[in-house]
Design a protein around this nucleic acid. Structure first.
Lengths: 224, 224
DNA sequence: CTGTCCGGCTGTCTGACAGGTTCACGCTTA
DNA sequence: TAAGCGTGAACCTGTCAGACAGCCGGACAG
């Protein structure tokens, strides 16, 4: 790449870099909320337009999600490499997930390391005590991603990481959480138990059942 | 189209999607210049702020660059996605592909458009007369990618596009081609016929059989 | 050929209003 | 009285209109 003579940054670029740095360095945690546009505007000494353009850049890179009336939330601490096809629809996800996560769960039961098991245990435990829906959803996607990684197959791991990003963009997910949280918790525990026990069929089955239940719940919301 | 966006798009998102589509479809050529913010604003019937936010998103994705006093120029027709290519092992691919491509073939049989069918026919026809192994492999991956796109599910389309990149880097595939080319051609024809006929089960079955055969052939080479 | 000027474009600011979200306060009801 | 309800205020994002400065390229005059 040809290095160009240090172009002077526009204010919007400077603000974007600052916010991005805050996110990638962990100064603002994943799941956390950024200050409001108005206060960022004051903090950086620029107008709200500039702040909004910077936030758009973050959103385009998949780092943040902005919700009307609520604020801007951090959903990833690094740029994902799956931006090519845009975001998946809820229908696409519901349709595709079983084909990927069910076999992944089966493989995870056979291949998981102790470290991976520890991660999963930690996540499931945290979910049970978590009351904030946004945080819970973040943990949920972490759990599914952890299983895919534990499958030892990078294709599965990559797809689920993809899906994880897409889920964060779907507000339906959040709406569904309140009703599904308890049921999901126990379903997760069953999946984890099967993976711990090294029982592939059970893990696959538990995952299939979980995804089916989630699909039904989502469906009832979307067609309500 | 079975699955469509369920979430209401904000104006900025809608404009972003439109501009991105123009770029990715080639309506605006790489190297070309977009209309000025003012005229885009008029064209889409939104304020300049909205246009600027959409352009920021394009810039963040690396599709465009904006130069003060000159305008916004297209520098790429797709989002760069360098990080995932070629990361998957042959074993990962053999293991994961059936779980994705088999259901995708089934869906394609039900959802494919005439255009997509035409593309697939063209590819299969070209493969039969193709003698150069490299070109044949390129067509092969195009065929699999076309089926995934025709499934109408972006998750499947994305994964197979990914896999396609990885396949091109695997020399085993090339070594295998000589022996498999003829068999693959007829397997492809069977898959295509089932998709043309709209028979989902047959399409899935033909794809499963094809992938199994490929897997066996690959295995015999790797363990030789 | 050169220097100047003008028209077009981006960068940024200000101020305003609509509509979504949250929460507490006060009123209703069992 | 206590639990529940709803209603409005405060805060937030989404969008708009208008304005001005600075950059860029080309036209035009010297």
């Amino acid at each position: 790449m040809p290095t160009q003579p240090l172009a002077r940054l526009s204010a919007a670029e400077a603000v974007f870099n600052a916010i991005r740095a805050d996110i990638e360095s962990g100064t603002v945690a994943v799941g956390g909320k950024l200050s409001s546009e108005a206060s960022l505007s004051q903090q950086y000494g620029v107008s709200r337009s500039v702040i909004r353009e910077a936030l758009r850049s973050c959103t385009a890179l998949g780092l943040t999600v902005t919700k009307t009336g609520k604020g801007t939330f951090v959903v990833a601490n690094k740029v994902a490499n799956d931006l090519t096809l845009g975001h998946y629809s809820a229908g696409d996800l519901t349709e595709a997930r079983p084909h990927i996560e069910v076999p992944a769960a089966g493989l995870a039961a056979v291949r998981r390391t102790e470290d991976e098991l520890g991660t999963m245990r930690h996540i499931v435990a945290a979910m049970i005590t978590e009351t904030d829906p946004e945080s819970w959803v973040a943990l949920d996607s972490s759990f599914h991603a952890a299983i895919a990684r534990a499958s030892g197959n990078k294709v599965f791991a990559s797809v689920v990481a993809d899906i994880r990003g897409a889920l964060a963009f779907q507000s339906e997910t959040l709406n569904m959480v309140a009703a599904r949280q308890h049921a999901s918790d126990s379903e997760h525990q069953r999946i984890l138990a099967a993976i711990e026990a090294g029982k592939a069929d059970e893990a696959s089955h538990a995952m299939a059942e979980h995804l089916r239940a989630v699909g039904v719940a989502l469906d009832s919301i979307l067609n309500h």
